[in-house]
Structure formats: structure tokens, C-alpha cells
Design a protein around this nucleic acid. Sequence first.
DNA 1: TCAATAGTGTCTATGAGACACTATTAA
DNA 2: TTAATAGTGTCTCATAGACACTATTGA
Lengths: 214, 214
Amino acid sequence: MTDEYRDPSGRRLTDYPRPSVAVDTAVLTVPAGGPLSVVQVRDASLGDWRLPGTFVHEGERLASAVLRSLSTKAGVTGLAPEQLHVFDDPSRDDRGWVLSVAHLDVVPAHALELDEPQVRLTPVIEARGMVHGHDDILGFAVARLRSVYSDAPDPHGLLPEPFTMSALRQLHESVLGERLLPDSFRRAMLPKLVATDTKRADGPGKPATRYRRG
Amino acid sequence: MTDEYRDPSGRRLTDYPRPSVAVDTAVLTVPAGGPLSVVQVRDASLGDWRLPGTFVHEGERLASAVLRSLSTKAGVTGLAPEQLHVFDDPSRDDRGWVLSVAHLDVVPAHALELDEPQVRLTPVIEARGMVHGHDDILGFAVARLRSVYSDAPDPHGLLPEPFTMSALRQLHESVLGERLLPDSFRRAMLPKLVATDTKRADGPGKPATRYRRG
DNA sequence: TCAATAGTGTCTATGAGACACTATTAA
DNA sequence: TTAATAGTGTCTCATAGACACTATTGA
């Protein structure tokens, strides 16, 4: 990388106007038996709840900026941020010309430590009304997550392995926001799973086979 | 928009380092009966062929920058640019820290005027080897286009209406890069089309019904 | 035994692939 | 009439939904 580049009219790259670039991330998870939920943060002045975000540092990868913002602002160890969309409305941020690159990060519930008062976990159906168009980012994130959970068993590893078919189906029901037929779901997922020889033993009922993703 | 914003440590937004932001666009089209093709440009010094692109101007929308670059560099009147992905490798552009927002624009062949020697139309299967990761952008664009042409009849309006079922199928075969079964294709598309009362009359064979998208 | 949960057998409706068949034109 | 293209009928196969059935446990 160098600053010596000049365009045909002799200007350096840095002589052009440049936007600030932010990353804003919808961190999604499903607490055991609970609904699809998103991590929200607010600043020290107790303002509105919003998605965690930060400005990108010089030469930094977008995914690195996402992980840094999650670690710093939400105490969350993110995994694999996935780009969703660039929000570029020049008037969307009253602080100036800011491009926001929306991201999705999917984190198992047991990996979240949400002790601080500036961080909370909110069911996505209750998380509307965020500033800076963060509702739109959440909408993109939920749609993306639902599309990958439509045909593969827990592709983001939200459930600790091994898991029973019931637990897997309940997870998918939480992500998709709809009930699934147990027998159709089983038949769709079985070819993509490998059975273990351990069985669930608690409570009544026939012991359930535990599976790993195959 | 104002410059008066200060962060907790008193810095203005513009005091932070900011990247240059470029847009690069895969303009895809299908010439009558021809293969899926992409518009390439090269600069006045007759360098490598690449995708048209430009730096974003202050306060400009990304889609506007795309249309400006297509009009200026390729003499193309673009339609509805669609965002694909942000390429953020800090070392991908040797001129400095540049984020590139890849776009797809789909343009009917009859709307293209490619007279200048700095602009050409190339079949996508022959367009490999471009600089600045433009091959990757083309890959994203082709994948996106194929996904929308998998279930809807000519969603981007590449074909002038009304069109025959054969013309529609040949278009889809060009986009998808594979042969399609005439009867299965007909049955899949018919519910999404409306028949007109005009018929194709040239050449031998039973006159073909002409359709519009429904 | 009963309640509860896991898992299977199987009928049916739907849709894609395959392919033979009919329909309508130009030459 | 023949070649060429448009369009239909229908068989088969794979799959999803539906639902009844069997299987195995704790209490």
C-alpha cells in the first residue's frame, strides 16, 4: 500500500472526499427453548437500545471491526460475521456522511455473557423501534438466517452436539418462527445427520437418539 | 448533516481515518441468441480489461455512483443496480485503502451502445483474468442472476415483450448455462405469463403464442 | 397399568422428468 | 406432402403432508 498514486489530474487518492464507514451487527441467538433473539446495546448516557457497531479503523477488515465492536461494546465473542448490505442513505446518520455495512453474526446462547446493564438480549419480535435504521438490518439478518435454516440442520452450530431430533426441531421452529411437522422434519434432516450411540435418559418416554451434524 | 459531532474524546467524525469507497459493476446482458455476456472497459492507456467502476462522490448514493460510472466509462444507460458484496481486503488495491462495493446491473442488449474501443461485450465464460478481484465480482453477479432466473420468467426484462415461449426458454438457457426441457419449462412459466392474441408468423411451423409477464 | 415421548409405515396429492402424440404453418 | 416448430396427454418417480400405528421409557 502506498500514498504515491496520482490520478490523471494529479490528485492523490486521499484528496477525494471519503465517507466514514461503520459496521453494525445483528448478533442472533436462540436461548434454550426460547425465541430467536438479538443482542442490543446502549451507550453510557442510557440512550436508545440499538445494534452494536463501530467505525472501521485504517486498514482493518470489516469482519475484524465487527468482532472488535462485539467484544468491546457487548462483551460478546463473535464467531463468523457475514456481510448483509451497505446502507448508504446520506441522511441516515446526522453525524455526517457515514456508510454502514450491516452484518449478521450467529452465536450459541451458552457463549453469551450478558451481565452489564448496557447490553441485553431481546426477542426479535420485540426489538422494533431502533434508531439509525437498525430495524432494517435486523430484518435482513433474520431473513438470511431463516433461509439457511430452511434446509440444513443447525448450520451455525447453535446447539451443542450431540442433540436429539426434538431439540433440533425446536431450534428450527424458533429460528423460522413457525411449527414444523415432526415426521417430515425428521425425514428431511436424517440424511444430513449421523447418529451417536448415546441416548437421552431423562424423563419418561422412549430414549431419543442423539445426532451430530454429518 | 453537520460537522459539529464530537465523540466522547472530542474528535470529529472526519478526524478518523476513512477509506476511499469505490463501486465496481458487472453489467450483464444476453445478446439475441447469444451467451450471457458482461460489459468490460479499459482505460485510455489501453491497460487490462476490467469492470467499470468509480469512486463515490461526497454524499452520493452508491446506486447513483454506479449509474454515473456506467454512463461515463461505458456509455451504458444502467437501470437498477443491485448491491452484491463489499470487498475489503486492505491489500487488494495498490493505490491505497479502498473498499469496493460490487454491484450487478442487468441491461437489455438492445439498450447497449458499445461503439468506443475502450468498451466491449464479452461472454462471461471468456471474461476471466481481470485485475482487482473483478473475477470474483463477476462470479457473485452471475450467481445472483441465475438464482432469480431459476423460477421467474425474465425478471429483469431482458426480452422485449411480447415474446414467444421458445425465445423465453432460450434466454433462460443462456442465463443459466444449461439446456432446459421445453415442456417442463413451459408448464413452470405459464402460470406467471399472460398470452396475447398476436402470433409469430415468420418461418415454418405452427405459429407461436406471444406472452407478456403477468 | 398409564402417560409421555421417539420413531415408522403408508396413503395421497403434487410436481418434475420423460416421451409420444397432435396441431398448424411455409415451402 | 414434407419439414419444422408449437403445444398437449400421460406415465413414472420422488417428495411433502397427513395420520395412524408401533416402540420404549418413568411413574
